[in-house]
Structures are given as C-alpha cells and as structure tokens.
Design a binder for these strands. Structure first.
Lengths: 182, 182, 182, 182
DNA sequence: GATGAATGAGTCTTCATTCAT
DNA sequence: AATGAATGAAGACTCATTCAT
C-alpha cells in the first residue's frame, strides 16, 4: 500500500496524486484507505522518513569509517547511490514537492537531514583542502552547492539504455575528482 | 503583475499559489485578474516562455561563436548564469512543478527546449573528446546527465553571504574542467 | 448597435451572448456600451417590444378587416410571415430564451402578447365552426395549440435553397385548410 | 437524482439550473453531486440520450411495419406521442437550450437523430405522393418543416384541462390529413 | 476491514456592471 | 462618448476526510 502510493507519488507528484487514485490502485475505495492510514500526509511521512533515515545512516557510516576525505566522499557517493536507487519514489516526491513538504511542521526533519548532509560534505572538503588533497582555492560551501543537486540523481532509471548505479557513481566521482579535461 | 505572480510562484510553487493570492498581492479582487490575463496558465506561460527564449538564445549564440568546445561551454555557463539570475521565478516554477507543466499540451515547448540544451552539451562534449581536449573515457550522455541539474543553479540568491553570478560560473567551470583534486 | 446585438442574440441566444461580444462587434469596449444602454436587458427589451408591437398590429389589422374567418386567418399568416422575416433576431431570442424572459417582470408583456395571439386564433376558429366553414368536430383550443409553433417559423432563412415568405405562407395555409390527403 | 435534475432542467432550462439547485433539491451539498455524476453535462446527456433512443426506436418500428405511408405516419405520431409524454424533461431541455447542446461535441447525436426524423418524414411523404395518397403539389421538405415543431408538442401537460396524449395525436392526424375545412 | 454517500472548504473562471479619467 | 481597470456575486468542479452501515 505504501509502495503503491509511492509509485504514484513518483509518477505524478505527491500533491497531484489524489487519495482516490491510491485507493483505486489498491483496489479499494478511497474511504477505506483511512483504515490503514491517518491521512495522506502520514503516507508521505512514512515514505520520506524511511528514506532519510537510510541516507543519514550512509553518511554517518562513511564518516565513521575514518578514511581520508576522498575515501569518505567516495564511500558516500557509492552507498547513497544504492540507497537512492531503492527509494526512487521518495526522491521524486522531494524533487516535485519540496516546497510543500518543507512548509509543513510535520516534515521539519527534511531540512534537518539536508543540513546534516551539507555539513558532512563541507567538513570533508575542508579536511581535504587542509590535507592538500583538494585544491587550495576551493570554496567548500560553493562547491557543495554545485554538487548538491547531483547527489540526488537517481541511478539506474528503469528505461532501456539506462546506467547502473555503479556507473553513475563512478562517473560522478571521476568528474568530481578530476574534471573532464585531459 | 506578471512579476508579482512570478514571485509568488517562486515562493510557493505554481500550483500551490492560488489566483486569489496573486490578486491579493496586487490589491485587487481575484476576478479582476482576468481583466489582465486569460487564465492562470497564461501567466505561467508568459513567465516560462520568456525565460526559455532567453536561455536558448544564450546557447545558440555560444555555439554560433565557433570557438573550441571548452570555450563554447564556458560561454554557455557564463551567459546563462546571468539569464538565470534574472529569471529566478521561472526557474523555481520549473523545479517545483516540472511534472505538471510538461504534462500539459500548452507547455510542450519546455521539453523541446530542454532537449536542445541536452543536444548542445552532448555535441560539444563529443567534439572535445575527438579533439583530445576532454578525457577519452568520458561518456557524453552520462556526463551531461550529471551536469544537468547544476546548470540551473540560480546564481546570487538574495540572501546574505550569497555568491555572485560570476563566482558561481567560475567555480562551476573550474570544477567541470579540473575537478577538485590538486 | 441594437441591430448588431440582435444578430448576435439570434446566432447564439440572448444569454449566451456576452456584453463584451456586443461591444467587440461594435468596435468599442464593453464599458462603453453603457453610454448607450442601461443594461443588456434593455437592449433585449427594445428588440422584443418592437417585434411584438408589429405582430400584434398585424393581428389587429386582420381582425379589423372584418372578413370571413378563413380570410382573416389567411391575412394573419401572410402579413406576420413578412413581419417574421424582418425580425429574425427577436424570434430566435424568444425561441432560445423564452423561459428566461418570461420569468422576469420586465418582460411580462411577452405572455400578454402571446395570449392575444391565442385568443385571436381561437375566436376565429370558433367563428368558422359556427359558420360551417370549419369542421364541426374541431377543438379550437387544441387546434390552436397544434398550430402555435408553426406560426413562428421564420420564413426565408438566409440559406440557399430556402423558401420565400410567400411560399411558406401558402404552403401553411394549404396544409391548414386542406391537409395533405388528396 | 436524474429525475430530480430533469424536473429542474425542464422548469428553468438546463443552463439556468445550477448544480447547487439540483443538490439542494436532493437534500445534499453541491459537491456531493459529483459522487454520483461526473459533471452537469453528463446528467444532461443521460436524460437526452435515453429520450432520443426511444424516439428513434418509435420511428424505426413504424417504418419497419411496412404499412402505407399514412399508416406509418399515423403510427409514428401515436407512438412518439406516448414517448414524448414520458420524457417531458428532455423535451423542454431541448426546446430551451437547443443551441447550447448542439454546439457541444458531446451532444452531436442530437442533430444526427433529428436528421433521421426528417429523412423519415420526407421519404414517407414522397411515397404517399407517388402512390397518389397525398396531394401531388405537396413539397415534402417544406411540409416537413411546417410539421416539425408540432411533432414535439408534449401531450398531456400536467395542468387542469390538459389533453391526453391520444387526443393530441388524433387531432394532429386529423389536421395533417384533412385540414380544418369542411 | 470495507463501503459509499456525504461534507465543506477551496479552486479557477465568468460576466454584467460601475466609475474615475 | 469612450476607456480600462475593477467589482462582486455566482458558477462548475475537486478533494481529503468522515462515518453510519
């Protein structure tokens, strides 16, 4: 049921999906949905909260590994890449209706999670600069801002000719560390 | 009036903004809006069409300049960076309600414009690879996909501590061509 | 101006025609119409009142001629046939929006005029029956009811292959007096 | 519910009847109507389509009976007379809002049905003329045009002193075949 | 658990009319 | 006379949610 709702949310956006459509997909009437959920909001909450929990776990594990900054970042990219692939609904919901969710008290944790992601990246970039592994003229905050949207590119879209999560992660890391020039 | 609507659309999303809110902001009644516009949709159209026209003009001018691929890409990034800064409302509208707009016949031109942007990037990346300026192992389509979202980062957010359009463009180009490593 | 409005009313119905459409047709703005007329209603009133005045004049003249019932009825059909042809707008308005007009106090005269028409027909039919010119088993009220709608068939529609007002009047009178059988 | 709506449509016209009035009459809120119907249009469609189906069935059965033209026409008048009496709402809707309905694609079948009615009458009139049963100087198309409106006179209006469906049909046939003269 | 009828607040839109300029 | 901006009441329709059965 949550899965069904997630698919619809991903297809057409959270707000554009009506409770009736979810119920139709589940083969029940819209009123009957409310035996399973308090509200449409709580379905969204379930999907989103689970997703962010996994993502933050990825980040914390990578930081806790204690590796060099470039290793920590590489681990983040590789593990979240898989998490992303398994939570496409949540991702699309956030991309389509970010404003809506973050304007509601119930979803305050979204901004909090994103702040932790941001802090992690910035502090790893700073560590790398200090250690001489990254260019000294790098502005960590601005660099993170540029990278930010790329972090959420869902790997392995279900279309023929798509790329695997690993391919996307590798390409991203190569681009990140070395750029496109020869 | 278009400006007012654009600001509201950018703040809360196109769909989440009601006609009444626009009218309120303009100090008139909601019905009076229709003296100036056919529909809510046509306000959105005006904002979006103008924006994409400017963006495509940037792209075509850069390509027409006939420079080396890296110069063409640099010009694109620098000129669209300014266009983006001047069309923040349109940008936010697209980010928030992309699904909605592209599902409506009237906004078919959105996908068309994005396709032209994609083609331009991919063909410049291909030219650069052939010319030996870009790494031979680069996958143009995948690389574009990674860059895509970054292209729309609106420069110079109006918040204290923001970066100028030039700063963002420069940082992006540096990252693009050379990566973050020393 | 009244003529213009009448044409539009006839084409699409009184209610379906907006004040703005009338103004557009006149080459002015909708607000400017109100320098010429109090209201949309008063334009309709002008068209309708003139029409019914002419029709009632036709009826009274025929009755006043003092002829035999069949002659009176023939005169009515022939003269109103021309009046009808010259007032197609009014006719169409009444056919499309009869309910609307008669539900408004201002147009009370519509029902009054129709009542006079009815009374005239019924009394001529009765006179004819008494005089032995019309069949004795004729129910005057029911007969009038059957004829009623036919009375308003606008002669000579402006389409190729249409019939002239005279042709329609003659055919109607032949049908009325003799039926279709040999 | 359809019945309720039909009564209101007949009383004040389809367009003049608001969805709220229908809901009020049903003792529910206007939004609740949409639990039962897609749209106001689909209520009208249901009423009108059923009516025209019955009418066309009457016509086809009469033609299929294979009788003489005057018998076919008599059967048409007698059977549709009953159908008319049972569909007064539909009839009034068509008389009041014919223009509106026929201007909408969904109600295209209205014109088609009327064309079939017209063809039937004209071809029976032609057959009767050939067979020598009807006057040789009859113009079938013009005659049909004169009769047309009479065909839809709903029998047995619910007012005291009304006529039964049979009475109206008989009077019409007598008038049609023999006229009013002795 | 499910039904299905109903709610009620809200959405975009229309249009005859007014009025300062 | 005309403009054009604005009014305000109304119209059809949507949708998350409730609740008796």
């Amino acid at each position: 049921m949550v899965r069904l709702a997630g698919q619809l949310f991903a297809q057409k956006g959270y707000r554009a999906t009506t409770v009736r459509e979810i119920a139709d997909a589940a083969g029940i009437l819209s009123g009957s949905l409310y035996h399973h959920f308090d509200s449409k909001e709580s379905i969204g909450d379930e999907i989103l909260a689970r997703f962010l929990d996994e993502i933050l776990a990825d980040y914390r594990a990578a930081v806790a590994s204690g590796g060099e900054p470039n290793q920590v970042l590489a681990q983040i990219v590789r593990t979240t890449s898989k998490t992303l692939a398994g939570n496409r609904a949540a991702l699309t919901m956030l991309q389509n209706d970010w404003h809506y969710f973050t304007s509601q008290p119930r979803f305050r944790y979204l901004r909090a999670a994103l702040r932790e992601v941001e802090r992690t990246w910035i502090s790893q970039l700073e560590r790398g600069i200090e250690a001489g592994a990254f260019r000294a003229d790098l502005d960590p905050a601005l660099t993170y801002r540029l990278l930010r949207d790329v972090l959420w590119i869902p790997a392995a879209r279900n279309r023929p000719g798509g790329y695997s999560a690993e391919q996307v992660a590798d390409a991203f890391l190569e681009l990140l560390f070395n750029g496109i020039s020869t």
